[in-house]
């Protein structure tokens, strides 16, 4: 009887307050979608780090015969002695603890690789093998220590540039973390809006049912029983918003983002997994409950006191 009565009260409140309830659902929906997007980005960043950080290597580009950017290479192509000096440095007592292995790749093979990757585009038209020098690929024992290696060999004669791939990742992570921050900011603002809206909704609902609650108090209904329909009204609306948010995130990951990312960032990202949406779902539901709970606590004390 009690449960049925409470459910009937909630349904009644929804009908009477339909537009406010819809507003609550929409605002929590958008705000929780932003929270969810931020969480999914975080998961994605962690995954990329896990997958790729281990494979980061340092590439030491040696001077080509015809350097586009003179810099270190004003003296022309790298000499065999200079090459040997770099390799010796990598094997030295100073660097050996950091270096797992290194491979020499000659200029022709680098040029071929370049042509394979960009073949047919304008980027290959004006390029000749003279523009490429040999490359030494260095695998690190701990990828975080790349800087020791780049510093040690970067300015040696015959070295054009010592580049670590973490640069590329850092720029990507930087971008992703900015997007994540923006999403969190949106989430915070909308979360506040959601709390205010739920508070107002509960207040309106309580005012429009003052006669009912008045009678309930007179005949001795418990505080919890009087307040429960209002609390649940806000909670159900917020939960509906969170369900919509989870659905949206999942749909975006499944039908749109996965394909788009695969086309554009195949090298780095792999695919965003729709299962991530399911992983963040519990957190969004908890966030919805917190939103509704805070709002109820703010309102009900004042409006439905015994």
């Amino acid at each position: 009887m009690r449960l049925r009565f409470v459910l009937a009260e909630i349904a009644h409140g929804f009908r009477r307050n339909a537009s406010m309830i819809s507003a609550v659902i929409l605002v929590t929906f958008v705000s929780l979608t932003a929270v969810g997007a931020a969480l999914m980005l975080q998961i994605q960043v962690e995954r990329i780090k896990g997958d790729w950080y281990d494979k980061i290597e340092v590439s030491i580009y040696m001077c080509p015969a015809d350097a586009v950017d003179q810099g270190n290479c004003a003296a022309g192509a790298v000499s065999d002695d200079q090459l040997q000096a770099v390799e010796d440095r990598l094997e030295s007592e100073v660097l050996a603890p950091y270096v797992e292995a290194f491979f020499y790749q000659d200029a022709e093979s680098v040029f071929e690789e370049y042509q394979e990757r960009f073949g047919g585009s304008y980027m290959t038209n004006e390029v000749s093998v003279e523009m490429f020098g040999p490359v030494i690929h260095v695998q690190l024992i701990d990828p975080d220590n790349f800087k020791v290696v780049t510093d040690a060999v970067g300015s040696m004669p015959g070295v054009w540039q010592a580049v670590d791939q973490s640069d590329l990742f850092d720029r990507l992570f930087d971008l992703l973390s900015k997007v994540r921050l923006a999403a969190l900011a949106v989430a915070a603002v909308l979360g506040l809006a959601a709390i205010l809206l739920i508070t107002t909704t509960i207040r309106l609902s309580a005012l429009s049912r003052q006669r009912e609650t008045g009678i309930m108090r007179l005949v001795g209904a418990s505080n919890l029983f009087i307040q429960l329909p209002f609390m649940l009204e806000g909670a159900v609306a917020a939960l509906t918003g969170s369900v919509l948010a989870v659905g949206t995130l999942w749909g975006v990951a499944q039908f749109w983002l996965a394909g788009w990312v695969e086309q554009n960032f195949v090298v780095v990202m792999g695919s965003i997994n729709p299962a991530d949406a399911i992983m963040v779902a519990p957190w969004l539901v908890i966030a919805a409950v917190v939103l509704a709970g805070v709002s109820s606590a703010l309102t009900l004390r004042r409006f439905t006191r015994v």
């Binding site: 009887m1 009565f5 009912e212 009678i215 309930m216 005949v219 001795g220 209904a221 029983f225």
Partner: peptide
């Protein structure tokens, strides 16, 4: 019946 429902009286009693 409202006065009985809100203090949790069972349906058959109402």
């Amino acid at each position: 019946a409202f006065a009985m429902q809100v203090i949790g009286r069972p349906r058959h009693a109402i």
